[in-house]
Computed example of a mutant assay.
Amino acid sequence: MKLRELAHSRAGDKGDISNISVIAYDSKDFALLESFLTPARVKLHFAGVAQGEVRRYSLPALGALNFVMEKALGGGVTRSLALDAHGKCLSSAILDIELPEPPESP
């Protein structure tokens, strides 16, 4: 199952840092997202894009995770030759992560 089936996402930028939020549609799915979407998993998904550290901030009351990826925008908006220098499409790209199927409810 793709992450997009359980969550939506937004992205922002500051210099060469991309900030991506993943927000569960349903709070019951947050634990699965939190257990599977580790900084290492997100960095692996963005191999070739995120050249620096990836940090995760958990916001359980909102059912959200926030990922901060350093050195992810080709030098930043004013220096990048990328078509999407702001990295807004990264919010769509993260939703392509494959997740394990959630356990069946009894």
Rank of each mutant, 00 (worst) to 15 (best):
I17M: 15
D29C: 06
V49L: 03
T38I: 05
R41C: 09
A40R: 15
V42F: 05
R79T: 13
L44N: 07
R10M: 00
E5G: 03
A72L: 12
D16G: 11
V77E: 01
S18H: 04
G76W: 01
S9V: 03
R55G: 05
A64E: 05
K43V: 03
E5H: 05
S27Y: 02
L59A: 11
K71H: 12
G63W: 02
F36R: 07
R10V: 01
M69E: 08
V22T: 09
T38Q: 06
E5N: 08
R4L: 11
E70T: 13
I17V: 15
K71S: 14
F30W: 02
S21C: 09
L33Q: 07
L59R: 02
A61N: 14
D26F: 00
V22H: 04
A11Y: 02
A7C: 07
G76M: 11
G76Q: 11
A72M: 13
A7D: 04
T38L: 05
N19D: 03
S35T: 10
G48H: 08
A61F: 05
L3F: 02
N19P: 08
H45Q: 04
A24N: 01
S9Q: 04
G12C: 07
A7F: 01
D16V: 10
G52K: 09
L44T: 14
T78C: 02
S18A: 15
P60K: 10
V22G: 09
I23V: 12
H8I: 05
V54G: 12
A50R: 09
G76E: 10
K28N: 13
A24W: 01
F67D: 09
L44W: 00
D16F: 07
I17S: 12
A64V: 01
V54Q: 12
I23Q: 08
P39F: 09
E53W: 05
R56E: 06
A31R: 14
Y57P: 00
A40K: 15
E53D: 11
K28H: 14
S27F: 04
T38D: 07
I23Y: 00
R4V: 06
S18G: 14
D26R: 14
I20R: 08
K43R: 15
A61W: 05
R10H: 01
S58H: 03
E34P: 03
H8E: 11
A61I: 08
K14E: 09
V49A: 00
Y25H: 15
E70I: 03
R79P: 02
S18T: 12
A11N: 10
A72E: 11
T38K: 08
A64N: 05
I17N: 13
R41K: 15
H45S: 07
I20M: 10
E53H: 13
S58E: 12
M69G: 10
A40D: 15
K71R: 15
P60W: 04
F30T: 02
F30N: 04
A61Q: 15
L6C: 02
F36I: 07
V68W: 00
R10K: 12
E34Y: 03
E34G: 03
V54F: 07
V54Y: 08
